[in-house]
């Protein structure tokens, strides 16, 4: 059917985009990978290869070890709370309420804000000498939380050169992130709840199931694919997080709120340790890839099958 010259047109039309992605994504990643194996740790550019030296340095580094701990703590808190909050909000908004669109819009609007704006505002809301603590004080709370200024780590297990556990300051940052992202989880779950057919619910009801049984046994299993997508999307945001923490707390005292994104930025562009910065970036990329590549592959399999 198609003439030969015509078959070439679609390919030609996406060629510029393909070339751009090939250079800006794959080319630059390879380049960063190369830099991470050099000794370019001063202002003067160097292409001298030193093997895994930068990686060895990073994994023994107090700051990078702290970053890995903080990322783990932040990821668990952020994903868990965002999903719970999102599911809870979605169920409430989905109970045929009046003013549904108003409530939906209120819960989603933080998504339209920049992480920088969120960081600036939450820094003020959770400021330990004012903000939420004023309210807590008037309620009679005596041990006021120090929020993001706390240097406490629980349970404080000594591993490597750091104390492992949940840094209390991370909770404050996670709260701001949950505030920003739970509307997204709500929107996803809402779309999922709407696609569970009424027949299915009705059938369960006829069988004598209570509302909470219907939710647990009928609706929740149907939401599983959405939960899976959410976990992957939220986890990759969490592994990459930079702006929110940079704007709200920075690395924090003893690096209690530092993350690889912040370390990479500071060591590369403030300290001129390009090779170490490249090393951090490659580790971040690897962590994200472990999550995203299987997700992409399975999405495409599903589409074909």
């Amino acid at each position: 059917m198609l003439q030969k010259s015509e078959r070439a047109i679609p390919v030609l039309m996406i060629l510029p985009s393909v070339i751009a992605i090939a250079i800006f994504v794959y080319g630059f990643i390879s380049w960063t990978g190369y830099v991470s194996f050099t000794d370019w740790n001063t202002l003067v550019k160097s292409t001298h290869l030193v093997g895994f030296d930068n990686y060895k340095f990073l994994f023994q580094d107090f700051r990078f070890q702290s970053d890995l701990r903080n990322t783990l703590a932040f990821t668990v808190l952020f994903i868990g709370l965002t999903m719970l909050c999102g599911l809870f909000l979605a169920r409430m908004v989905d109970s045929k309420i009046k003013g549904e669109s108003f409530f939906r819009n209120v819960f989603i609007f933080p998504m339209a804000l920049s992480f920088i704006v969120t960081g600036v505002v939450w820094q003020w809301v959770l400021n330990p000498t004012t903000g939420v603590n004023l309210v807590l004080k008037s309620l009679g709370v005596t041990h006021l939380p120090k929020w993001f200024t706390s240097t406490e780590i629980v349970p404080k297990i000594h591993i490597g050169s750091i104390d492992f556990g949940l840094p209390i300051a991370v909770i404050a940052v996670a709260l701001a992130a949950v505030w920003q992202m739970s509307g997204f989880a709500m929107a996803m779950y809402l779309a999922g709840l709407r696609s569970v057919s009424d027949d299915l619910r009705e059938a369960a009801r006829v069988d004598g199931a209570t509302e909470s049984q219907i939710f647990r046994k009928v609706i929740l299993p149907q939401l599983k694919p959405i939960s899976m997508s959410l976990i992957i999307i939220l986890a990759h945001i969490s592994l990459k997080i930079f702006d929110l923490i940079y704007a709200m707390t920075g690395p924090g005292a003893m690096f209690v709120t530092d993350v690889p994104g912040v370390y990479m930025f500071e060591t590369t562009f403030r300290g001129n340790h390009y090779a170490q910065g490249a090393g951090i970036a490659m580790i971040m990329l690897l962590l994200v890839s472990v999550l995203i590549v299987p997700y992409l592959v399975s999405s495409f399999r599903k589409e074909r099958g």
Binding site: I29, W31, T32, M282
Partner: peptide, 20 residues
């Protein structure tokens, strides 16, 4: 090609920053 393109939206941009 599409899948390879999509990967580009998930990468941490730190990993392209120095060459960029």
């Amino acid at each position: 090609l599409f899948a390879l393109m999509l990967f580009g939206m998930f990468i941490p941009y730190q990993s392209v920053l120095i060459p960029l």
